[in-house]
Design a protein around this nucleic acid. Structure first.
Length: 836
RNA sequence: GCCCAGGUGGUGGAAUGGUAUACACGAAGGACUUAAAAUCCUUUGAGCUUCGGUUCAUGCGGGUUCGACUCCCGCCCUGGGCACCA
């Protein structure tokens, strides 16, 4: 690192960013130049970073890349006349903070506060122009009270329900995990085993929005196509039919299929082990014990087991058969765990000739296989023989009275966690239907769903009662010493008496720990919301961050919304589907009047370690931003983060490249001194044209997040002009185009040339002469499509005179060598191709 | 298995139908210096060359086109995501 060591020794022109970076950062904060003004008449531009989780380990050089990108973009838009809102906040609920807090024996707010301070100072150090007056923190009661209010909208609309369901229970973490929190059958966090356990859970009925979530992707032309594809696949809408098979067991088995035309080839049925219909059918089975044993064994399997072994297992239900409604044949019934109880009806018709999985299980039990489609036509299918697949589909569905049905892969969202550090549900439980009905007469009534949410424990019915928005202070997390996992399936809150036991005033809806006459005893809900909750609506809070009454005012969302650019890591399916879902529910609740939250998405590629591996603290291959800033300054660091490669591509970090960016800034600095000394009024046309070209390219590239080529065009320009005399006006324009990337140095130069206002509130320079005004263009001369020579001609040259010129070219002559010219193709402004 | 994104010099990358290798790093040589660093200049895809040029190169094989890194078809490889969804 000799270069870095010698930086301070330069004797000619001292470029010492450490002398002015801090100064400008402070002045920008003092003069509030990044504050967004919600009353300006300018067009708005709302730029949001996916907000970080402030973890205990500090940032490495990879983290700020996205923030630098959006900072450059925001500065550019501000200079281009937009009223820019570019805020920042913290997604601070969740397991890691809770675990650190338990380890350190401190309350999580302490951990979170410390981590945020650390993260914030690291961001500040880079000169990022956030509007800190709008900073948010999902764990701040002033924020999460609104998350709770929005939950009440879900509840009131019947979208928040309780279900006892098989959930992913992780004993090590003492909590239930969402599918998205599980990687390769183990918990994403800590890599612990995960088991299926039945448990009462809160779920959000995202499936009710599945169609809108798919269909509205069409409203998002500025989203990357691959994300839209991923979301469509995740939601997994398929259109098919549902109909019944009668059985000798006195129950009908409903099945779902997308290939109803293959019914003639259905030679058996397969039922999912856990499904209700299996329970009914099995009671008629001769081998009831054997089937029940199979069901028991499969229920013990973990997700990991299921993934490791894909061998088809199952058991034939003896003594019971089903009737194929097309052929009239009696066919066997199999219970097998490759059929999922959670999809479709939990039962399928097996067509081994046309489905690989069915074929595998057919082989295990030597069941028959009938091919019913050959080269697009029906065969072995009686009256259908010779029909096309489409015709057969139509006929069969009429014959068996099948209902058209859409099914989705996406599941309802398991929304509760058995942890302490999350938003408490704004729900208390009351015993007995009479009490519930009494409550529905009062003010609580209008917050109740049509179908009551309840569960049965022994003989007692427990009903979910919402805590009204004005009384949510009773639903703040209690500040207690002990909040460790209980080790049972219940969360820590269940072990805290002062939390669980409460009283409800049926006349007002108020909840308190204090008993009053006529108040009803209730139990507070002890689950908390998952980390996804706070991050599913936070962009809206930025628009109106200090509103105490509502999450955000309608007016503020109309003024700023939707988010114009949303940038961050690739969360193709989880966060971005949840966020869209919440947004649509809020739209239905009348809180917002646009249907998609993010107009445009820009994904960020991770920075990798120099060997191409992932940066991780354990490997010791991380590089701290502080170190880099100390060595080359914040501007050079920012510039390099942008220059290193395309924004969306993962790139290995390499210190060597950093040097080039620092050198570039030093050369600009030296040029500044020269320009200020000579104080020239007009540059040569070549210099002016070079600068203009660069400014245009930089602007165009920033607009489409191609920061790397923007930087290189400024470098090219500097190479062209640095040994010429540059007029002060041209140089100022150049500096303006560099300002979004290197805000400190450009601000310093800006003040040196006598500007009083900040460069960051100046205007993006307009090209002062038309680029390429000299009227000549350089054409490629090609022979048979191969570039051989070039020629500079007037832009509007006549084709005939051009041909004469080209044919007399030495290089062309050499390649012609007497051969006949068949034709000449002229592509205006680009190339002339001589075909021989 | 399915879906997505990629494959260009020693390295990060540029060029989305028209001058392949911009920009930067690294490397070699030179200027300045007692010397070194820094800085500046020159060279830098590979081969052949009479130093004018010329041939070959964008994972592999075909195709479309006057012309293909770019579009189409078929492979190979790398990375990421999903995964028994009937």
């Amino acid at each position: 690192m000799q270069f870095f060591d010698n930086l301070k020794k330069g004797d000619f022109m001292k470029f010492e960013p450490e002398k002015f970076e801090k100064k400008w950062q402070e002045r920008w904060e003092e003069s509030s130049i990044y504050r967004a003004d919600s009353s300006s008449k300018k067009p708005t531009c709302f730029v949001v970073d996916m907000f970080p989780y402030p973890s205990g380990s500090s940032m490495h050089v990879g983290h700020p890349r996205g923030y630098v990108g959006t900072d450059v973009y925001s500065r550019f838009k501000r200079m281009s006349g937009f009223n820019v809102l570019h805020p920042m906040g913290w997604d601070a609920f969740g397991l890691p903070a809770e675990e650190t807090a338990i380890q350190n024996k401190e309350y999580p707010t302490v951990t979170v506060k410390r981590n945020i301070e650390k993260f914030k100072s690291q961001l500040m150090m880079l000169g990022l122009g956030y509007d800190w007056s709008r900073e948010i923190n999902t764990t701040d009661p002033a924020y999460y009270v609104h998350t709770q209010k929005i939950f009440l909208e879900f509840f009131r609309r019947g979208l928040a329900q309780n279900k006892t369901m098989a959930v992913n229970w992780c004993p090590e973490l003492g909590t239930v995990l969402a599918n998205e929190d599980i990687v390769d059958g183990k918990s994403e966090r800590g890599n612990h085993p995960v088991f299926q356990r039945p448990m009462r859970q809160w779920i959000l009925a995202i499936t009710q929005y599945a169609d809108r979530l798919v269909d509205d992707l069409a409203l998002l032309p500025h989203w990357p196509e691959k994300i839209k594809i991923a979301q469509r696949n995740w939601i997994g809408r398929s259109e098919g039919h549902e109909f019944d098979f009668s059985t000798t067991a006195n129950v009908n088995v409903p099945i779902f299929t997308t290939r109803i035309e293959t019914l003639p080839g259905a030679t058996f049925l397969v039922l999912a082990p856990e499904s209700d219909i299996t329970r009914k059918v099995v009671s008629y089975a001769k081998n009831q014990d054997q089937v029940e044993q199979y069901v028991e064994v499969t229920s013990q399997k973990t997700d990991l087991d299921r993934q490791l072994s894909r061998e088809k297992t199952g058991v034939i239900v003896e003594g019971v058969t089903a009737k194929n409604p097309f052929t009239g044949m009696q066919i066997p019934i199999v219970v097998a765990d490759y059929v999922l109880s959670s999809y479709g009806t939990g039962a399928i018709m097996a067509v081994p000739a046309h489905d690989e999985r069915d074929a595998e299980i057919a082989k295990v039990f030597s069941l028959p296989l009938i091919t019913v489609i050959e080269t697009g036509r029906m065969v072995n299918a009686d009256s259908l023989n010779g029909d096309t697949v489409e015709d057969a589909r139509e006929k069969v569905s009429v014959m068996v009275d099948a209902k058209p049905k859409k099914r989705y892969k996406i599941r309802d969202w398991v929304f509760s966690r058995q942890r302490f550090w999350g938003e408490p549900f704004p729900i208390v439980w009351i015993e007995g239907r009479d009490n519930y009905e009494l409550l529905s007469q009062g003010p609580i009534g209008k917050w109740l769903p049509n179908e009551p949410v309840f569960y049965v424990d022994g003989l007692i019915e427990h009903f979910a009662v919402p805590v009204l928005p004005e009384f949510l202070h009773a639903m703040r997390l209690p500040e207690v010493d002990s909040y460790q996992p209980t080790g049972t399936l219940e969360g820590p809150l269940a072990g805290i008496d002062q939390w669980v036991k409460a009283f409800l005033n049926p006349k007002t809806g108020e909840v308190s720990n204090q008993y009053n006459v006529d108040w009803m005893p209730v139990r507070r809900e002890t689950n908390t919301m998952p980390q996804w909750a706070g991050s599913s609506w936070y962009w809206l809070r930025y628009m109106d961050p200090h509103n105490e009454n509502v999450p955000f005012s309608k007016g503020s969302s109309q003024y700023w919304g939707p988010v114009n650019v949303y940038a961050g890591a690739d969360h193709a399916v989880a966060h971005l589907i949840y966020a869209r879902f919440w947004h649509k529910v809020m739209q239905d609740a009348g809180m917002v009047d646009f249907s998609e939250p993010f107009e445009r998405l820009e994904f960020l590629g991770y920075i990798l370690a120099s060997d191409g591996s992932k940066i991780s603290k354990r490997k010791g291959n991380s590089r701290s931003p502080e170190e880099v800033v100390q060595q080359v300054g914040a501007d050079a660091f920012r510039l390099y983060e942008m220059f290193i490669g395309p924004f969306e591509k993962p790139i290995p970090w390499n210190d060597d490249g950093l040097i080039g960016c620092r050198r570039f800034l030093e050369r600009v600095w030296r040029l500044a001194e020269k320009v200020i000394e000579s104080n020239l009024a007009v540059s040569s046309p070549a210099v002016t044209s070079s600068i203009n070209k660069s400014i245009q390219k930089v602007g165009n590239d920033i607009e489409v997040f191609r920061f790397n080529t923007a930087v290189s065009s400024m470098m090219t320009c500097l190479n062209e002009i640095q040994h010429s005399d540059v007029a002060i006006s041209d140089f100022k324009a150049y500096i303006c185009s560099l300002a979004p990337f290197a805000p400190h140095m450009t601000e310093e130069i800006w003040s040196m040339v006598g500007q009083k206002e900040s460069i960051h509130v100046s205007s993006w320079p307009k090209a002062t002469v038309e680029v390429g005004q000299d009227g000549n263009v350089v054409l490629s001369i090609q022979v048979n499509g191969k570039h051989r020579s070039k020629i500079s001609v007037p832009r509007d040259i006549e084709e005939d005179s051009l041909k004469t010129l080209v044919l007399s070219d030495q290089s062309v002559q050499r390649h012609l060598s007497g051969k006949e010219v068949k034709k000449i193709i002229y592509v205006s402004g680009k190339a002339v191709n001589i075909v021989i």
